[in-house]
Design a protein around this nucleic acid. Sequence first.
DNA 1: GCGACAG
DNA 2: ATCTTGTCGC
Length: 243
Amino acid sequence: MDLYVSESGVAMEIQLAEPWPTTVAEAVAVQRRLRHRVRAGDDAGSPVRTVAGVDVAYAADSDRLAAAVVVLDHTTLDVLETSTVVTTAEFPYEPGLFAFRELPTLVTALRGLRTVPDLIVCDGHGLAHPRRFGLACHLGILADVPTFGVAKNVHVGEFVPPASQRGATSPLTVGGEVVGAAVRTRSRVKPVFVSVGHRISLDTACAHTLTLSTHYRLPETTRHADHLSREVLAGRISPTVAG
DNA sequence: GCGACAG
DNA sequence: ATCTTGTCGC
């Protein structure tokens, strides 16, 4: 496969907002300003050959955090490339604003990639967010790459539990508006919550979620990234990018 | 005022 | 998110 690789070795030039918000008010303002750039809906004819999973692990007793990006072959689920980095948290965790805590580190790790993934699966929500601009939307806009979110818990919205069989889904709604879907990736196991990030439809995002969740509740992309970020944070694996 | 609140 | 032991099950 002919993956795009620039001469410098840096595949993506992602720019963080300047300056990066430091207060809740500033962060909310940024979300309100960028939310209008989100495009829900599938890109025209672009096959997905590579899928990236991203995740961040936190130290319990310090403000260190490690981000990991794992690129998989969408068909075989083989790991094609990884990028990791360890940094320090600057923004506190606030429900609805955690993108501001994780994105700086996540973007640093993404810049370390030699290839541009066709799709990025995020750990958290996209449109299923108070201002319809969760981490998956934010990252999709900054990287201009199709993204969607797979969260383990609901943040906003209501849903009726989907049928107990794997593959069953039900809408996640806020005041009648569909913002995502509860997806049963394993029979009789708590569903995950899928929502659009950028340049993808909810149906396609749900289909990818099931394709990527072969043996466990969470997609393999998320599992790989979660494991790698913990190993790097623990110092058992060296980060590939300088913090 | 009270409870909820992605990771 | 992270702190934590054993335990039930394939």
